[in-house]
Computed example of a mutant assay.
Amino acid sequence: MFMKKADRIAIYQVLFHSGVMFAERSPQMMHTDKELKHLTNLQVTKTMKSLKSSGYVTEQTAWRHHYWCLNNEGIEFLRAYLHQPAEAMPITLQRRTVPVRMPRTSDDPRFRDGPRDGKERDDRSTYRRSNPPTGRELDKTGNVGAGSANMEFRGGFGRGKKDY
């Protein structure tokens, strides 16, 4: 497929920067990445297909999307093609300086107030108790609506009926 060199370089730069690329299978749609808004999914797909045939990316397909991941040979190829320094790496291979952790201390507003509405923390265990704190028995199978009566089999059509 004929494509401008500037468009191919734009695809290569986005791929080298992030380490992964995706495209939807609808070829006429414009690509959703903000750096590649001027390109169609067909152009991105065909460029990535040429990289895949050279062994620089691995392809994965799920539903209506293609996903490509840059491998080590592809990193070396794009580094040379885009004239990047040797220490330049895709974001997927860079280590984070600060680890991402979910706060689980009392400073977190989700854990500050304790149980909501004065209820116990484990509402399900209090519901399933046979003797609630009020002291009266609960019949959990009593008034459940349709289907609360005992099951009765009267025969009928279908499997299991034998007429001899």
Rank of each mutant, 00 (worst) to 15 (best):
M1L: 06
M1T: 12
M3K: 06
K5G: 01
K5W: 04
A6G: 12
I11E: 01
I11C: 04
Y12H: 09
Q13S: 09
L15E: 02
L15Y: 02
L15M: 14
L15H: 03
F16C: 02
G19L: 02
G19D: 00
V20L: 00
A23F: 08
A23H: 06
E24L: 07
S26F: 12
S26W: 05
P27S: 06
M30T: 13
T32F: 07
D33V: 06
K37L: 10
H38F: 01
T40M: 02
T40E: 01
T40C: 03
L42M: 11
L42N: 07
L42S: 12
Q43A: 10
V44G: 04
V44W: 00
T45H: 13
T47H: 13
K52I: 14
S53K: 14
S54W: 04
Y56T: 10
Y56D: 04
V57M: 03
T58F: 11
T58D: 13
T58C: 05
A62Y: 10
H65S: 14
Y67D: 00
Y67F: 15
W68V: 10
W68K: 11
W68N: 05
W68P: 04
C69R: 15
G74F: 01
I75T: 10
E76P: 02
E76W: 05
L78N: 07
L78D: 02
R79P: 11
A86K: 15
E87P: 02
E87R: 06
A88G: 04
A88E: 10
A88T: 12
A88R: 09
M89S: 07
M89K: 11
M89H: 08
M89F: 10
P90T: 08
T92C: 11
L93T: 15
Q94R: 15
R95L: 13
P99V: 05
R101L: 14
R104P: 01
S106Q: 12
D108K: 04
P109I: 09
P109H: 01
R110G: 01
R110L: 09
F111R: 13
F111P: 08
R112W: 03
R112G: 11
R112C: 11
D113C: 01
G114C: 06
D117N: 13
G118N: 10
K119C: 12
E120C: 09
D122E: 06
D123C: 04
R124P: 00
Y127N: 07
Y127K: 15
R128L: 15
R129S: 14
S130L: 13
N131E: 14
P132C: 05
P133H: 00
T134D: 15
E137N: 08
L138P: 01
D139L: 09
K140Q: 11
T141Y: 11
G142H: 04
G142P: 00
G145V: 09
A146R: 14
A146V: 13
G147P: 09
S148F: 04
A149G: 06
N150G: 06
F157G: 14
R159Q: 07
K162N: 03
D163N: 13
Y164T: 09
Y164S: 06
Y164Q: 03
